[in-house]
Amino acid sequence: MAKVKLHRCNYTFLHTNLDACWVVQKALDEQGVEYEVVKEGWGKGRRPKVEALSGQSKLPVLELSDGEVYRAESKEMAARVRAGGVG
């Protein structure tokens, strides 16, 4: 079972740096972090599961192995992953 859960949008086919979720997923892949993708609802509307988890509705969100829920802008999240702060 994966140690980290990546809550991301359903657009898993979109692999560009314009997709915030892909930016974080790519960083996880580059660092060899084992993770599970949890696809969340479409659009930028309400996401009850995400809101319950993180207190807001934006994606991506990481659930870390120590129970921390982490949400920031995708570039900041990717930088933390690359610095070894996730896993």
Rank of each mutant, 00 (worst) to 15 (best):
Lys44Gln: 01
Gly67Tyr: 07
Val69Leu: 02
Pro60Glu: 04
Tyr70Lys: 07
Glu68Leu: 01
Gly45Asp: 11
Leu64Arg: 04
Gly55Phe: 12
Glu68Pro: 06
Ala52His: 07
Lys49Met: 12
Arg71Asp: 05
Lys58Asn: 01
Leu59His: 00
Leu64Glu: 08
Trp42Asn: 09
Glu51Met: 11
Gly55Ser: 13
Tyr70Glu: 12
Ala52Ser: 07
Gly43Thr: 01
Leu53Gln: 09
Leu64Asn: 05
Arg71Ile: 07
Gly55Asn: 10
Leu53Trp: 13
Asp66Arg: 08
Pro60Met: 07
Gln56Thr: 07
Gly43Ala: 10
Tyr70Cys: 02
Glu68Phe: 00
Ala52Asn: 07
Ser65Ile: 14
Glu51Ala: 11
Leu62Lys: 02
Gly45Asn: 02
Val38Glu: 01
Pro48Met: 10
Gly41Leu: 13
Lys39Asp: 15
Arg71His: 12
Val61Asn: 00
Ser57Ala: 14
Lys44Cys: 07
Lys58Ala: 02
Glu68Ser: 12
Glu63Ala: 14
Leu62Ile: 09
Ser57Val: 14
Ser57Glu: 08
Glu40Ser: 11
Ser65Trp: 14
Gly43Leu: 08
Val38Gln: 02
Leu62Gln: 05
Glu68His: 06
Gln56Ile: 09
Ala52Trp: 03
Tyr70Asn: 00
Lys58Leu: 06
Val69Gly: 02
Arg46Cys: 07
Arg46Asp: 12
Leu64Tyr: 02
Ser57Met: 13
Val69Phe: 05
